[in-house]
Design a protein around this nucleic acid. Structure first.
Lengths: 252, 252
DNA sequence: CTAAAGGTGTGTCGTTTTTACACTATATCC
DNA sequence: GGATATAGTGTAAAAACGACACACCTTTAG
C-alpha cells in the first residue's frame, strides 16, 4: 500500500451553479472572492469536501450556508480536474447545479455570503479558476434538462402565470416560443393545477395563476422515463405465441 | 494555506466501462482483480490518476493499456465518492464509458490484461467496490445516448448489415423494434453509405452491407444538437425586423 | 432438382404530434 | 370612453410515428 502514498496528496472541491429566475432573466449566484487565489474575482460558490463528507452533502452544505435553502433541486453535472486549475495543488472539482426560487432566497448573514450577488447569465464573462467553463457545462445541462423534465417549476414562485413560465423557458433555451403552442403543450402534460385565481395589481387584463402538481410529476417520472422508440407490439405478441406453442408441444 | 493541508490527503481514480457488442449481445470488459482489495473479484478497469495527469488522459491510458485502442469513443459519465468506498482512504472515482468494436480489440500482452474478459451485461451482478453502481450509471448513459446520437456505429465493425444494427439497438434498449420502422428511421437520417455489396457465406439470402458516414455525422452534430422545441419563426422574423429598424434609425 | 429453411427487404394507411398563424377579451389608467 | 397592455383562444396543413404481411433470395438436405 505504500506504493500508493503518492496518490494521496490531492484534494477535491464541489462547485455549485445556483440558478434563479427573476424579471425575465436567468440568473446565477456568484461570490466575490475575498481571499487568494483569484481575490476580488467572481466565482461559483464552492468549497473543499471534508475528509468524511459525502460529495452530495458537501454540495448541499455549500448551498445551504449561502442561501439557507434545503430540499431544492441539486444534481451532479461533471467533474473538472485539469492539472493546474488550482494554485494550491492538485484539486479536482465536482460541479453541481441547483435550481432555486429567488423569492425563497434570503442572503444568509454569514460573512461569506455578504459578497454574494445574482448575475444575469448572459453577462457573465469572467470568473475565477475554470468556473466559466463549469458554468457553461451547467447551463448546457439545464438547457437539456428543461426539454426533458418539467424542471422549470423549480425556478418560479409557487404560483405563476403561463406567460411567466414561457418567459422562463425562453430565457433558458435562449429562443422565442410560440404562445399558443407552448400553452397547448404545457397544459397537455397535465402537470398544472389551475388555481382559478388571477393576478392582482397589474395594469392590464390579469392572468390566471397556476400551481405545479408534484404528485402528477412523480407519476410522470415513474412512467415516462422510458420515452421514445416504442417496443414492437407484433414481435412481442409473436414471441408470446411461440412460447405458448412450445409449451403445448411439450405437453403432448 | 496551511489551513488547507488536511484536504490534500485524498486520491482519485478513473474507472472505465468499456462496452462492446458481439453475437447479438452487449458486453462489458471486466478485469479479475489480482490484488487486494477485492482480490479475485471482477471490476471495471481503472487506476489512480497520476499527480500530473489529466482525467481524460488517465481514462485513455487505462483503455489503451488494456485494449491497445486509441481514438475511440470515450466520455465522462459521473463521479462517485462515497466516503468509505475504498479501503485505502478517501478515493473518489471519475467514471468514463467507452464504446469499442470488439473486432478491433486485441488483448494486450501486459500482465494486467491477462485477466480481462468480456461479460454479457445482463449477467453481471457482482463487482468489486461500487462498480456495479457505476456500471449501471454508464449503461443508463449509453441507453440515453443511443436515442440521442447515432453512436451505435462505434460498436459495430466498419461494415455491417441493417439487421446487425437493429440487434445492437435492441440489445442496448432492452426491447424489440419493428424492422420496417427501424429501417425507415435509420435510412432517413442519411448517415449510412450503401456499399452495394452483400454478405458472403451465410446460409440464407445475403444482406446488404452499409458503412457509417462520418462526414454527415459531424454535420448532424453541428446542426442537430439544438433538437426539439423549435423557435417560433414568426417572432424570429419580428425580432430581425425590429433589429433592422433600429439599425436604420441609428443610421439616420 | 426440388422443397424446406431461414433471413432479407419492402409500402401503406390511420393516428398523433408538430407547426404556423391572428384576432378578440379584459383589465387599468388617463 | 378611449388608449394601452397583456391574456387567452382554434384550426388547418405537414410531418412523424406506429401497426402490420408477404414476396424474395440463397443455402442445404433429401
Amino acid at each position: 500500500m505504500t506504493e500508493f502514498n503518492d496518490f494521496f496528496k490531492s484534494a477535491f472541491t464541489v462547485d455549485n451553479a445556483i440558478f434563479g429566475f427573476d424579471e425575465g432573466d436567468l440568473k446565477i449566484l456568484l461570490i466575490k472572492r475575498g481571499e487568494a487565489p483569484y481575490k476580488g474575482k467572481w466565482a461559483l460558490p464552492g468549497y473543499f469536501v471534508y475528509p468524511s463528507e459525502e460529495l452530495d452533502s458537501a454540495a448541499k452544505r455549500v448551498l445551504e450556508e449561502l442561501t439557507g435553502l434545503r430540499n431544492v433541486f441539486l444534481e451532479q453535472v461533471e467533474t473538472f480536474g485539469t492539472v493546474n486549475r488550482h494554485p494550491f495543488g492538485r484539486v479536482i472539482t465536482v460541479a453541481y447545479f441547483s435550481l432555486i426560487k429567488i423569492s425563497d432566497y434570503n442572503l444568509q448573514p454569514a460573512s461569506i455570503a455578504q459578497k454574494a450577488q445574482w448575475h444575469s447569465i448572459s453577462k457573465v464573462n469572467d470568473l475565477a479558476f475554470d468556473h466559466l467553463e463549469i458554468l457553461n457545462a451547467c447551463f448546457q445541462r439545464l438547457k437539456w434538462l428543461v426539454r426533458t423534465r418539467p424542471v422549470g417549476f423549480e425556478l418560479l414562485p409557487p404560483q405563476f402565470t403561463l406567460t411567466a413560465l414561457q418567459h422562463l423557458y425562453e430565457a433558458i433555451l435562449e429562443t422565442d416560443l410560440d404562445k399558443r403552442n407552448f400553452r397547448k403543450k404545457i397544459l397537455s402534460m397535465n402537470l398544472l393545477i389551475d388555481l382559478e385565481q388571477t393576478q392582482e395589481g397589474v395594469a392590464h387584463r390579469p392572468a390566471r395563476l397556476y400551481e405545479f402538481d408534484r404528485n402528477k410529476y412523480h407519476q410522470f417520472c415513474d412512467e415516462g422515463l422510458n420515452f421514445e422508440l416504442k417496443e414492437s407490439k407484433k414481435k412481442e405478441a409473436k414471441r408470446a405465441a411461440a412460447h405458448r406453442k412450445k409449451m403445448l408441444q411439450a405437453a403432448v
